[in-house]
Simulated assay, not measured.
Amino acid sequence: MRRINFSSGAPLEELVGYSRMIKIQEHIYIGGTTSVLPDGTVHGDTPLEQADYIFRKLISLLKEANA
């Protein structure tokens, strides 16, 4: 089976070898996601702003995977 890793650019992904999302054949698995920016700061002051950022991040990854 072919596994494809997708990174969202969060700092811990590269540091600990974590992939935000992986695709194995027609299955896609997404790990827990927060509103942390690549520089380690948190995006948004409200839960709504943070959720919006998270969903945009996930939608971008899904598009990248042709989902």
Rank of each mutant, 00 (worst) to 15 (best):
Met1Trp: 05
Met1Val: 10
Ile4Asn: 08
Ile4Gln: 12
Asn5Arg: 14
Phe6Gln: 06
Ser7Asp: 04
Ser7Thr: 09
Ser8Ile: 07
Ser8Pro: 07
Ser8Asp: 15
Ala10Arg: 08
Pro11Val: 13
Pro11Asn: 13
Pro11Tyr: 08
Pro11Leu: 14
Leu12Lys: 11
Leu12Ile: 14
Glu13Lys: 13
Glu14Thr: 11
Glu14Tyr: 05
Leu15Val: 14
Leu15Gln: 14
Leu15Ile: 13
Val16Lys: 01
Val16Ser: 06
Val16Arg: 01
Gly17Tyr: 05
Gly17Asn: 09
Gly17Cys: 10
Ser19Gln: 08
Met21Glu: 03
Lys23Pro: 05
Lys23Phe: 06
Ile24Thr: 15
Ile24Val: 15
Gln25Arg: 11
Gln25Gly: 06
Glu26Gly: 08
Glu26Trp: 03
His27Tyr: 07
His27Ile: 15
Ile28Asp: 05
Ile28Gln: 04
Ile28Thr: 09
Tyr29His: 07
Tyr29Phe: 13
Ile30Leu: 14
Gly32Phe: 12
Gly32His: 06
Gly32Leu: 15
Thr33Tyr: 01
Thr33Cys: 07
Thr34Leu: 00
Thr34Ser: 02
Val36Asn: 03
Val36Ser: 07
Leu37Cys: 07
Leu37Asn: 08
Leu37Trp: 00
Leu37Phe: 02
Asp39Phe: 12
Gly40Ser: 13
Gly40Thr: 08
Thr41Val: 02
Val42Glu: 10
Val42Pro: 03
His43Glu: 01
His43Arg: 03
His43Ile: 00
His43Cys: 00
Gly44Glu: 01
Gly44Ala: 04
Thr46Leu: 04
Pro47Lys: 09
Glu49Ser: 04
Glu49Asp: 13
Gln50Pro: 01
Gln50Thr: 00
Gln50Arg: 06
Gln50Ala: 06
Ala51Pro: 00
Asp52His: 12
Tyr53Arg: 01
Tyr53Pro: 01
Tyr53Asn: 01
Ile54Ser: 05
Ile54Asn: 04
Ile54Gly: 03
Phe55Ile: 12
Arg56Tyr: 02
Lys57Glu: 05
Leu58Ala: 02
Leu58Tyr: 00
Ile59Gly: 02
Ile59Lys: 11
Ile59Met: 07
Ile59Asp: 10
Ser60Gly: 15
Ser60Thr: 05
Leu61Thr: 01
Leu62Phe: 04
Glu64Asp: 06
Ala67Phe: 08
Ala67Pro: 02
